[in-house]
Design a protein around this nucleic acid. Structure first.
Lengths: 346, 346
DNA sequence: TTGTATGCGTTATCAC
DNA sequence: GTGATAACGCATACAA
């Protein structure tokens, strides 16, 4: 691990000035081809590796992009990261991954870190209630929100039709004859939690039915929390649901966990419609879990492309800084064997 | 997005020198508490954010850690990333995520990028056949290999008992009476592919049985490839297996995909033992997929801790640079309903 | 306890 | 076509 080779070193061995070497490596037109060749060869031979930190410091252009997600284990955010990583790589950027675990303090700490690293931009799936400082920091740089919208953060957003994500499956269950449809969703503090709950309720309203308020459970978007919520729901023997819909990818995992623990027969004892389109969902149980499938990959890709564009057009003066950009992708229902008509009354 | 505040700015407003401000922010003992307080207040008020790039340049200490994985969508590497991210955050480092997609050229390009970013260290799940330059570059910095071992890269390695990972399930199937056990694994060029195949073969050898060479399929560790390999295996009607074991997390996904496409009854038509311990495996089919479960999280955590330690002890002279470190974690079999005795002959 | 000066590796601005 | 020099933001050796 000897000291790294710098432009200066190359300049010395070649009897050239640092500026010439620098320009040669940058392939400047004002350097003779011959010199360029000599420089390149020397650089290769000596194992020169450019110092992007120094470059960024001088030029003000960073190649780092921050990605803040609550979790990276779940397929959902895995897919997000994969798509974004591809975007970054294609545009010559590097992805700095920060896992917030839904914790606003961890989130703030990571945002601070990203600011210190002078990232060129940030993609964030925000926590339920970000610290005020988090917002002021993010306001200083190119920020794009993904999936969730943070109140008070005036930036572009890419996500899905959250209300539709729950109205569709809820309506489908209603059409099958279900009335006691439970909802296990994310807290209202999350934009997704709020809107998805709205979609669930809208389905009842549109059908002219009462909303079964006793069957609604909201909490942190974690599997463990969802498992508990569902177990609690089921513990009220006299007032059990005939179906359940979930309002998030990790919540779905938790509910399935709980259903397995309770040994419930699906769809005989209970119909289920989950959330997301991880490959394994289609293998759940006897012939797959019905789900609301989302174009997560597309959402993340659009988001990444948009951010890259914004970053690049920054210097080029065309500051179409206009209104914050919003893009909404539509979900669709994938009906599988976890859904059926409710047991007949009488 | 006005210009960022620097210590110089703070120094000016406070009528202090830059070094005093710098020391105050670094909480140096040789600065009066009063001055520190004034500086901190001014920094807060003006919205000062340290420039880690400049700091790294001056001090030679980077806070960046590179993580190279073939894929980030799959639970397996998601878990790796999650554990590593936690390690990094705890130690004040930031994780730069690079997805190689098993492509050695993409891998090299990412390694170059990480070198340019002057990362303090790298954790790599190497591709099957890395480019020579990749190795020379990695040799220059703190590198730890994860899961796979790259021939010719002399660095620490953290992984599992790969041979055991296949000997255990294969032996279990043999004990159940299976003889025609298929193996869908990663290419021999991968250290894991080679060793896992070895474990599969060892199980037969130990039982004094012939190895069913016609039932072995090796290929790239991707779901799509595995699906094809299994389909091919099954297409030989006269010589079908009674059981299949897989040699990787993503290969397992592919085989399951293929089994579903072919509409096979498990375990009646075929017994299956998969790889990994993603939560959904226990929900596969009627009562779960049997698997070889691995302490991926532990492996990644050990790996991260080791790397952090190496990086930190770097300056402190105690260069216990001795022999490359190796740590091997043990797998264990989780038997579920996808495994049963083979159909009786006669 | 504080200030001055220097350099980390690069690029940009001059000059030749 | 090439070179000398300054500057990016910070940390540190050396003075005071």
């Amino acid at each position: 691990m000897s000291k790294a080779v710098t432009i200066k070193d190359i300049a010395r061995t070649l009897g050239l000035s640092v500026s010439t070497v620098g320009r040669a490596l940058a392939d400047s037109t004002q350097i003779s081809e011959e010199t360029k060749a000599r420089v390149r060869q020397a650089a290769l031979k000596q194992g020169y590796v450019a110092h992007s930190g120094a470059r960024a410091m001088r030029s003000g252009r960073s190649t780092l992009i921050g990605l803040l997600v609550p979790d990276i284990q779940n397929d959902f955010y895995g897919t997000v990261a994969q798509a974004l990583a591809a975007c970054c790589a294609a545009a010559g950027y590097q992805l700095v991954l920060a896992v917030t675990d839904e914790n606003p303090d961890v989130e703030l700490s990571h945002v601070r870190g990203l600011m210190e690293a002078r990232v060129a931009g940030v993609v964030i799936v925000g926590s339920a209630a970000p610290r005020p400082e988090t917002l002021t920091l993010l306001a200083r740089i190119h920020t794009v929100q993904l999936i969730r919208r943070i109140a008070g953060l005036d930036s572009a957003w890419f996500g899905m039709d959250d209300a539709g994500c729950l109205e569709v499956p809820t309506a489908a269950l209603i059409a099958l004859g279900h009335r006691r449809i439970a909802y296990v969703g994310g807290a209202k503090e999350l934009s997704t939690g709020d809107r998805r709950l709205g979609g669930y309720q809208a389905a009842f309203a549109r059908a002219g039915l009462e909303i079964p308020h006793d069957l609604i459970r909201l909490g942190p978007p974690r599997a463990a929390a969802a498992a508990q919520m569902f177990a609690d729901l089921w513990s009220h023997r006299a007032a059990r649901p005939t179906a359940v819909v979930t309002g998030g990818a990790r919540l779905t995992v938790g509910v399935l966990e709980s259903i397995a623990d309770l040994g419930l027969q699906v769809p005989d004892a209970l119909s289920v419609i989950g959330f997301g389109d991880a490959p394994w969902l289609k293998w759940w149980g006897t012939a797959g879990l019905s789900t609301v499938a989302l174009p997560v990959r597309d959402i993340a890709a659009s988001c990444g492309e948009y951010l890259m564009r914004r970053i690049n057009e920054n210097g080029e003066g065309r500051s179409a800084d206009a209104a914050p950009f919003h893009a909404m992708h539509a979900p669709h229902l994938v009906a599988r064997s976890s859904t059926a008509a409710p047991p007949q009354r009488d």
